[in-house]
Design a protein around this nucleic acid. Structure first.
Lengths: 172, 172
DNA sequence: TTTTCCATGTAACTCGTTACATGATTTC
DNA sequence: GAAATCATGTAACGAGTTACATGGAAAA
């Protein structure tokens, strides 16, 4: 549902064809949203069938024709509905990496430390990568800064976990 | 993959039948892991076919027969492999709720505040609920405390966002 | 001239969920 | 006698991904 919301939200700002949308999402939203190309095309088709968006084919010279979408009145209503619902809802987060942590006692503390160092490096790299993302205007920037905030706290938490295992490693 | 890891990790501690496993996961892991019953049964079947676990049917009185699983030598190797991989890997987190936030400018600040208040209440309730979860022994407790830590920081972040919109609401 | 870019998709597949099915047994 | 618990699953569905397909135009 947040995928439709994203597409409508972007189309509302500027009528676009699928390729351009995909490009924008890949380039500027990669940090926070993963929406693959075929999924985007599929959703555009679906929303067009539902009458949320209308499509017009344009062609420039001999280039492949573009299907430019724009949000209809019905789509606008759906957008507002989904946006309000999304804002009012808290959706929980799962951490797949926690499962391993839960069983970390099954390995020697020293090996856990080595493995967690690897994890930490990946997390730090991700955080670093995020700082190179260009600024967005308005509220879109909130998404990036949330990611940043989250990764920073995750890093702090991981360091605290690592410290715990360091203690265990010493006493063994 | 973390689902298999979870099942193997639990079975390694104590041989169990599917029902008991599901019960444990529902009761004690609900906070952090959602693994539905049919999925668990399916994965147990799959892992048995792969030779990671062996099954023995037992029956007590006239009760429905139990299929008790235990981890094989091969399963133990897989477990160790997956555990190490999981510990060394950092997996990113997506926040579906951020999409709406990114488009929050499309609504009046006062309405955004109302909606975010709802979201905040749900988040606070979740955090409250989590504090009633019984303590786990050993590293398993890490999972719960991570959730707690994460929800607390999320709450702080959300409050900061709300504060931003309060400023906007005043100046309009 | 070969690669990359523009622009669209389809088909097959995986993973997981929901809803349903079964049947005995203890509890209310 | 009805409802919840024990114990196992199957079948159908949905959402999303990967890999593949197409074909012209611009850039290297």
């Amino acid at each position: 549902m947040e995928r439709e919301l994203l597409l409508l939200g972007l189309l509302r700002r500027e009528n676009m064809h699928g390729y351009k949308l995909n490009e924008f999402i890949e380039r500027d939203m990669a940090a926070c949203m993963d929406l693959k190309k075929p999924t985007a095309y599929f959703l555009l088709d679906k929303m067009a069938k539902q009458g949320w968006i209308s499509m017009q084919e344009t062609r420039e010279g001999n280039r492949p024709p573009r299907r430019v979408y724009k949000v209809t009145a019905k789509g606008e209503m759906e957008y507002q509905r989904m946006l309000r619902q999304n804002l009012a809802t808290f959706s929980e987060t799962k951490f797949p990496g926690d499962v391993g942590l839960g069983f970390a006692d099954d390995l020697a503390p020293n090996e856990v430390l080595l493995l967690l160092a690897e994890r930490r490096a990946a997390l730090a790299a991700r955080l670093d990568e995020l700082s190179t993302v260009p600024e967005h205007r308005g509220a879109l920037q909130l998404i990036v800064s949330h990611q940043q905030f989250h990764l920073e706290t995750e890093l702090r938490w991981l360091d605290q976990v690592i410290a715990q295992f360091k203690v265990k490693a010493k006493s063994s």
